[in-house]
Amino acid sequence: MLVSIVVPAYNAETTIVACLEALLRQSMPPQDLEIIVVNDGSTDGTMALIDQFPVRSLVQSNQGPAAARNLGAAAAQGEFLLFTDADCVPEPGWTAAMIAPFRDSQVVAVKGAYRTRQAALVARFAQIEFEERFAMLASLASIDMVDTYAAAYRREIFLQLHGFDTRFPVANNEDTELSYRMAARGMKMVFAPQAIVYHLRHPDSLVRYARLKFSRGYWRMIVYKQYPGKMLRDSYTPQSLKLQIFLVYAFLLLCPWLLLWPVAMIPVILFTLLGFALSVVPFTKAALRRDLPVGLCAPVLLAVRAGVLGAGAILGVLRTKL
């Protein structure tokens, strides 16, 4: 059984070495693995570093990770396609753990898990966000979201579906779109929590975090336009997050009316704030148990998350086409 691992790389000279070293340390026999790195038009020293490793390398002009992954998949020979990113470091057992669920012939895609060793508070907060979602996924027999930092597909099915939608120009929700497309066809996807990659670049400042979440909100709304049913519920998005976005924007819209009707508006605004406070209690309690400083900051960071995700989503609604 041959397994093909595809890594898209764009200006990844600071991370690609750690990624490829980890892939070459996988516990599966080397003869069962094919590692393909697609240089997506890098302008730094990425290509020179790739050339130092015994991997297949492909080159394309900069077209984005969706196109790069599709190029690697088309060139792959394995029965199974695995994807990770150039800023991820898989654990030695990652490949084997990703492949194991395919023993069930009904499984067509597998999602692994993220971790990080970053010390920055915002990065630690981002990791606890992932852990909240992983806990949701772990309780489900089938999921509808496979992220490309740790993704596996039956290659035949992936090619039948024409891979990722290359109209997504950046690494943002192209994997969501493919997941929803597969879910719409009744295809079974599962979560493998023991298939772990370490991410080297969780957002480590509030500004980077806000920019990322704004972009996430924008591109997710583009996907929701194609799959509106997923806006109500999917296996990966906490319902509390949607409530928090609503409450943050309700608060912002209500505040100006204080000038006209202060007596009437004050109770409504206080009720909105109370609703938000109650909505963040479960996440905050979990964060406090895992990381006290993050837990203390969690309500504020959750408010920022709701605000910027909502702003991105609003812009996504206004976009007329992909």
Rank of each mutant, 00 (worst) to 15 (best):
Phe158Trp: 02
Arg289Val: 13
Val37Leu: 06
Leu296Val: 15
Ala12Pro: 03
Phe125Ser: 07
Ile99Leu: 14
Leu232Asn: 05
Ser215Phe: 04
Trp261Ser: 10
Thr15Glu: 04
Asp51Gln: 07
Arg117Leu: 11
Thr95Leu: 10
Ala135His: 05
Ala183Met: 03
Arg69Pro: 11
Ala68Asn: 04
Phe246Glu: 14
Phe251Ala: 15
Asn172Glu: 12
Arg289Met: 08
Phe158Gln: 01
Leu58Lys: 08
Gln118Phe: 05
Ser57Leu: 12
Thr95Ser: 13
Ile269His: 07
Val190Gly: 00
Gly275Gln: 08
Cys297Gln: 09
Pro262Phe: 10
Arg133Pro: 05
Met182Gly: 09
Ser205Val: 06
Arg103Met: 12
Ile222Thr: 01
Lys321Asp: 14
Ala73Cys: 11
Val108Tyr: 08
Met182Asn: 00
Leu258Arg: 06
Thr166Cys: 01
Arg185Trp: 02
Arg154Gln: 15
Val108Glu: 07
Val7Trp: 03
Glu131Ala: 13
Gln244Glu: 14
Ala74Thr: 07
Gln63Leu: 08
Thr272Leu: 14
Val197Phe: 05
Arg103Ala: 15
Pro256Met: 12
Gln31Ser: 15
Val108Gly: 10
Leu241Phe: 04
Lys285Ser: 14
Leu254Gly: 13
Thr43Phe: 10
Phe53Glu: 10
Ile269Gln: 13
Ala75Val: 00
Met47His: 11
Leu288Asn: 11
Asp85Val: 03
Arg290Lys: 15
Ala138Trp: 05
Leu258Thr: 10
Ser61Arg: 07
Leu33Val: 10
Ile196Trp: 01
Thr46Glu: 11
Gly163His: 07
Leu301Lys: 03
Pro29Met: 04
Gly310Val: 03
Gln239Ser: 06
Thr176Gln: 05
Arg289Pro: 08
Val317Glu: 14
Leu121Gly: 03
Gly312Cys: 02
Leu247Asn: 02
Val17Lys: 10
Ser61Ala: 15
Glu129Met: 07
Val89Glu: 04
Trp94Ala: 03
Gly163Ser: 07
Ala67Val: 09
Arg185Gly: 07
Leu121Thr: 09
Leu161Tyr: 06
Leu20Arg: 02
Lys230Pro: 14
Leu247Arg: 02
Ile196Tyr: 05
Asp175Gly: 09
Val146Asp: 01
Leu33Arg: 13
Tyr153Thr: 03
Leu232Thr: 13
Ala152Phe: 04
Val3Thr: 15
Val59Trp: 13
Ala264Pro: 13
Leu206Cys: 15
Ile314His: 12
Val223Trp: 00
Val3Ile: 12
Val3Gln: 03
Tyr224Ile: 07
Leu309Tyr: 14
Ala311Val: 03
Val3Lys: 02
Phe53His: 02
Gln52Pro: 15
Lys321Pro: 08
Lys213Trp: 08
Gly72Ala: 01
Leu274Cys: 14
Gly310Ser: 08
Ala123Gly: 14
Gly72Tyr: 00
His199Leu: 12
Val280Pro: 00
Val38Met: 00
Ala76Leu: 01
Ser139Asn: 06
Val17Pro: 00
Thr237Tyr: 02
Leu81Met: 02
Tyr249Ala: 05
Val6Arg: 01
Pro90Glu: 00
Ile35Trp: 01
Asp165Tyr: 09
Ala22Arg: 00
Arg124Phe: 08
Val146Glu: 04
Ala68His: 02
Val6His: 01
Ala113Met: 03
Ile222Met: 03
Glu91Val: 15
Ala195Met: 03
Val268Ala: 06
Leu252Met: 11
Gly93Thr: 01
